[in-house]
Design a protein around this nucleic acid. Structure first.
Lengths: 224, 224
DNA sequence: TAGATTGTTAATCGATTAACAATC
DNA sequence: TAGATTGTTAATCGATTAACAATC
């Protein structure tokens, strides 16, 4: 890859350009955030972007952005900004998430269809390799170019496809039993779009989507 | 409503004179987070919850949670925990978002339908009072019990219903022009589900949904 | 009571910010 | 060059954590 010589030749830091230590939670979260904006900027044809612009889109202070990035190498050009393409590669490398990851989607309702037919996940290297639904009537139908599978095949598919992430777009009542099955099958990250509070073992991470909470948060600053 | 006498005074104040101090961004974000879990817990019939349990569901340290809450009053009972109902009321009061807010939904595709038929927003006091779509064929059809309206009526509806939040579940290409119209109509908070980077005036807040980014973030900690 | 959990303190760590020289 | 923007420092602020007495 071309990444090595760009960052490597810049300065031979003792720490180097490869983050040996685990990133702090805050840094990882912010880098992911930058990546989102950069990906969108790339789609819109932008070639460079300044820390100031990144700041406006991410709501992260521009000094903080420069500081986050400069910790891993000198990626920017003074007076110009950052090259969008190269910064995307750099951040992906830092986050070690440049690869492709297989995910499984559960629930072929409106939300499931919306997810399957969008490329929000695909843009970040997540391939929806299987869609499941508990309703026998939906099994076999096509959603987003995929055949909807029976939940009974869960274990086999997780193993065959090396799935580590399960996206739960199912009714609240179905979420916990499904989560239990996914944990049993070896899935380690659950993305929960239902309203259930999921109980899982400590080695499993649950992320619960909360658009309304984000909205409340925004509203607080609007009202005050 | 009981909300008016508590939160109303803050809203009615001229600029600068707010009775209570504005919460820090971090506190407001965490309180919103607690509220989400409490709302779910309430639905599941829980009567009390400990800071330790809240910590497990929110990934916020339990000491931090007790510290956040005790800053506003002694809401808990030692040896027992917090009463779910009363804590919900308290946090809503603190966030001044206990009232009902009218929001408008744009786009009657899969995502729009998923949002309209779920109660993720309703649970937090957000009423979807209007659904718009640019496609004339969809205008007039029913989605989530509402008649889909023509985008041309936007200005009038925003004024009539007092809408401050617009949820954009539209194709990327349609997002910026729509955002411009919403800003013109006086909407101050945009919830963006498209992949567009929206340019808006400083008085308008854009929140871009980023499930894939959250996933990347979770994955980083799984991989390392 | 006895166990559990809050409310609170104090110490540490990381985030944020302003400022500015370096340099594209 | 001249303007713009990075990379970096230093100072401040807020978040996090462990620990524990209070008390339900």
């Amino acid at each position: 890859m071309t990444i090595g010589d760009i960052a490597g030749s810049a300065v031979d830091q003792p720490d180097g350009d490869v983050p040996t230590e685990r990133l702090s939670l805050g840094v990882a979260a912010r880098l992911s955030r930058y990546l989102q904006v950069l990906t969108q900027a790339k789609k819109m044809g932008r070639e460079t972007i300044s820390s100031q612009e990144l700041s406006e889109y991410t709501h992260v202070n521009s000094t903080q952005i420069r500081r986050d990035l400069s910790g891993f190498g000198k990626f920017g050009k003074r007076g110009v900004g950052y090259n969008v393409d190269s910064l995307v590669s750099q951040i992906r490398r830092i986050l070690q998430t440049g690869g492709q990851h297989n995910i499984a989607l559960f629930g072929a309702g409106h939300l499931g269809k919306a997810i399957a037919s969008s490329d929000i996940f695909a843009d970040h290297g997540f391939n929806v390799v299987a869609i499941f639904d508990a309703n026998p009537k939906k099994v076999g139908s096509k959603v987003g170019g995929q055949r909807v599978r029976d939940i009974a095949d869960l274990g086999q598919v997780v193993e065959d496809e090396g799935i580590v992430v399960g996206v739960l777009a199912v009714p609240t009542a179905a979420a916990q039993p499904l989560a239990d099955e996914l944990v049993r099958a070896g899935v380690r990250i659950l993305f929960n779009y239902s309203e259930a509070l999921l109980d899982v073992p400590p080695e499993v991470t649950v992320h619960t989507s909360s658009p309304a909470v984000d909205l409340l948060h925004a509203l607080y600053f609007y009202l005050s």
